[in-house]
């Protein structure tokens, strides 16, 4: 388990843990990023926000937030 910020473009990941406070976690879940969901890292340029594709939509996430979302790689 490691922060989403450290993934690479093209990685297939599974969400393991969400942190960052009630409000933000709830919003992530509403947008389809619940624990257990699989996603693909579309953009991670080691600077600026990331883009992940989850349940058919592209969600942009700030780098600070991506440090608080823990993921694992899916083979």
């Amino acid at each position: 388990m490691y922060p989403m910020a450290f993934t690479r473009e093209g990685d297939k990941i599974i969400i393991k843990d969400l942190n960052g406070g009630q409000g933000i976690v709830g919003r992530l879940v509403d947008m389809g990023l619940n624990v257990g969901s699989e996603a693909v890292v579309v953009r991670n340029q080691n600077t600026g926000p990331l883009i992940v594709s989850v349940k058919g939509s592209n969600i942009a996430l700030g780098r600070g937030l991506a440090m608080k979302i823990f993921v694992d790689n899916v083979r």
């Binding site: 960052g20 933000i24 992530l28 939509s57 592209n58 969600i59 942009a60 700030g62 600070g64 937030l65």
Partner: peptide, 12 residues
Amino acid sequence: GRPSHFVMELPP
């Protein structure tokens, strides 16, 4: 303080 976390859908 700092700006809040950035979360946004990028529609096609």
